[in-house]
Design a protein around this nucleic acid. Structure first.
Lengths: 120, 120
DNA sequence: CTCCATCGTTTACCGGTGTAATCGATAGGC
DNA sequence: GCCTATCGATTACACCGGTAAACGATGGAG
């Protein structure tokens, strides 16, 4: 169940509130993305065909719900990148960012807390 | 300078040894990827056109070198994913993996060491 | 000097994606 | 009951990416 980046924006709307009508979705994403209403409709349809969302009738329109869980998607995307770039290991990625000096003090503190938290 | 995943496999060969002829590259990636020689040639050409690799003549053939640095590529890809999925922050990604139970004891140890290493 | 093998270059083709307009059904206003 | 606004569905189209074949130049064998 692979979804494209544009499709994932629509999923994003449905992951924060559910169910939503096509109008709702358009209201939530079209502005920020610079998309026309038609574009959103296309994306909704593609997601339906892929089975990533489901629809239930509500009078003259449909209400949509995500069938693909946000978590599963995050998982697949993240693992995919890790596999492609860092041989599946998380530490090299973190190391890469630290070497780049891309970590703020806050990042570091947060990571530290996380790591201390999960070893027992 | 965006390169596709197939193209990045070719870059991978050039990042480990440089310069390489087209034949070398084919030898190094075609088997593992199930690609024909023709496919590798196409990828080389697309990389040339994108300016991601350079070529210097060597008799009847060319030798290729990466112009795009592996590090810059890793950086762009990683940051891209972080931005798309985790609002640009590293900690949520790590947190995501830990919640998934996707971290081995070794991972944790490694991360711990890393984090202790870079705060001063 | 000629022919062939071998490069690199050009062209091909299909599916997916971004982006959107058009069409056909239908429910609600009058 | 009929017309129109509004849905969702269908169609469009260009570009990219994966995969590969065909073509054209050219250097080396004989």
């Amino acid at each position: 169940m692979k979804i494209s980046t544009a499709e994932s924006v629509v999923m994003g709307a449905l992951w924060t509130r559910e169910p939503l009508s096509a109008e709702d979705i358009t209201a939530q994403v079209a502005e920020g993305q610079g998309w026309s209403e038609a574009t959103v409709k296309t994306l909704i349809n593609r997601l339906l065909n892929k089975g990533a969302i489901g629809a239930e009738r509500d009078g003259r329109r449909y209400l949509y719900r995500p069938l693909l869980a946000r978590d599963a998607w995050l998982e697949a995307e993240s693992q995919g990148l890790l596999d492609r770039l860092f041989d599946g290991r998380l530490a090299p990625l973190v190391s890469h960012f630290s070497e780049k000096g891309a970590l703020t003090a806050e990042d570091i503190a947060e990571l530290k807390k996380l790591i201390e938290g999960f070893e027992p």
